[in-house]
Amino acid sequence: MSFGVPKKLEREINRLVKNYPEKRSAALMVLHALQEEFGHISLEAEQWAAARLNLQPINIHELVTFYPMLREHDPGKTVVRVCRTLSCALAGSARLHRHICQRLGLEADAPGLQRTKDGRFGVEYAECLASCGTGPVMMCNDDFYENISNDGADEILEKYDE
């Protein structure tokens, strides 16, 4: 199987690798870049990254399975991460998570990432997102939202449901 990356991404990865005295150090940044391009990190992408960094594929697989933000499988087009840690919990993150799940036809309180059938959304709880004063907070892909009411959540989700 041949796995290739677009020229532009390859240039970006070359630039990233140069930021470190040792190639292996670039692993996380390369994986971020690959995930941004492909939405998740397939086994082929892992092998490509390993080859690019002169590593064994297991060295990369160890990372992808460790870090929750790196996805082995397509998590959905928009990944909604609701903070569940104490301050946000006190501010109503369970309510928010339940509301979002119900709206998207997912199971409330289910552990781990849930993906809508159409693949447009993936919803999961995240640990502390470091904005505890404005809970409940969540992220939709790279965007950050705080003080979210149920109505607010509806508005936000609509933005991504296009």
Binding site: I58, N59, F66
Partner: peptide, 8 residues
């Protein structure tokens, strides 16, 4: 370098 730890 064939073995590793997966998951956490």
């Amino acid at each position: 370098d064939a073995l590793g730890i997966v998951n956490r």
